[in-house]
Structures are given as structure tokens and as C-alpha cells.
Design a protein around this nucleic acid. Structure first.
Lengths: 106, 106
DNA sequence: AGCATAGTTCGATCGTTATCAAACTATGCA
DNA sequence: TGCATAGTTTGATAACGATCGAACTATGCT
């Protein structure tokens, strides 16, 4: 019941696909917020972007399919979280560079 | 006569624009090659991509306008070079993350 | 001057994608 | 069971961007 929302195997994730995913203002801000490593609710109002919730859902999906995030389902509420350790192993330094060099490895 | 091809002030360069520029297979490979810091000829055959030279010129322009590269004109031949020091100062670790990742997935 | 070479720019095409609104699914609650 | 809530999916639209070929610009060479 938990863990629908499949993520790609990190070994299959290509750098250019990760870059395409974060090369969007909204998705880059999402990743920046996720830089703390914690799960964050997908609740649209919480994010405060000026887009509809369907658009936000589209961005969350893009990040997950690019291998950047995972989705955590708990009841009716979904949270999104960076796949930090895996990303750091596959693309050293990338997440740090994107999130403006905030420390906190895994 | 020399040094047309204007580049943006690095202070005005936004991360998301840099990411959009490198979020393309050809441009990412160009940046990887430019990672040595040296100027490289724009000569299409030298690069060996399977695109026309007009397409390659489009990619060079995209990189320059994103603030990633500069163009060096000498006679009839043009060279392209990473703005490495400026990029490293503005986006610490980014160029390293982009250029070191290719080694794993070849 | 005339011609070749190196690279750019232009105009068109075509695929991709960000966006919205509406319909849908799944869960929790009374 | 019925209803509200949280989020997703679908279908449509519109803008963007990668690509090509052809025309153009600038430089060097004879």
C-alpha cells in the first residue's frame, strides 16, 4: 500500500536528466528547500508558488522520475524527500552546488 | 574587430539559467570538454557531434549567453573557453560537479 | 580584386513541456 | 454509507527550443 510512485534505479540516472529536471525555476526552488534532507509535504499552499496544484503535481512527478526525489505516502498526505545519499554518491558535489552549499551530508 | 560576442555580467547570471544551458546532451559534453580550462576551437568536425554546424553554433551561443563561456576570436577561427574562475566564485562546486560526473558513466 | 574558409544568423519545422481546468483516485471521518 | 480532503491524471493549449538548410558576414590567401 505504501510506496507506489516508483523511482528509477540511481545507477540508471543520467546527469543530463537530473539537470533538465532542476533547470526550471519552480523545481529548483523545490530542490533547494529539500536540501535539508527532510520530507516536506506536497501541500500546494505550503509551497506558495503561483501555480495550480495540478502543475505542482507535474513538477513533483518530474523530480521523482528524474531520480531526484522519493515520495512518502502517509494516509491522505504525501511528502517528498531528496534522495540525498544516493545522489551524493552518484553525482558528488552536485546537490551541494544546487542548494547553495549548505553542509549536511548524509 | 576582436571580441564582439558579449557575455553577461556574472553577477547577473542566475543558477537556473546556467542549469538550463547545461541540461542538453551536446552542451553538457561541450562543458565537460571545456573543463580543462583551455580554449577549444569551435570547429564542428573537431567536436564530432552528429549535428550541422549551424546547430553547433546555436549551442555555443546558448552557453555564452547563459554566462558559461566566452568566445575568443583569432582571425577566421573562433575558440570557446569556460569562464571558470568567475563560475567557481559565483556557483561554488558547480563546474566540478558537472565535469567530474562523466567519468563514471562511460 | 576574387575566392575559399570559418563561423553566424535566419526562417521553417517539429517535438517537448509548462500550464490550466476538469475529472478522477484514494484515504479519513462522521 | 456518504462526504470531504489530498493529491494525481488527463486533455487541451501555447510557448519554447533543437534541428536543418540556406543565406550571410568576416577574415585570410593568392
Amino acid at each position: 500500500m505504501t510506496n507506489d510512485y516508483p523511482v528509477p534505479d540511481m545507477a540508471d540516472v543520467e546527469l543530463v536528466d537530473v539537470l533538465r529536471a532542476v533547470a526550471d525555476p519552480i523545481r529548483l526552488r523545490i530542490v533547494t528547500v529539500l536540501g535539508d534532507g527532510e520530507p516536506h509535504s506536497k501541500s500546494a499552499p505550503d509551497w506558495g508558488f503561483d501555480v495550480q496544484k495540478s502543475t505542482l503535481a507535474h513538477h513533483f512527478k518530474a523530480l521523482r522520475e528524474a531520480g531526484i526525489t522519493r515520495t512518502i505516502v502517509e494516509g491522505r498526505s504525501h511528502a517528498i524527500q531528496l534522495r540525498r545519499a544516493e545522489l551524493d554518491a552518484r553525482f558528488p558535489g552536485l546537490v551541494d552546488a544546487l542548494t547553495h552549499a549548505g553542509a549536511a551530508a548524509d
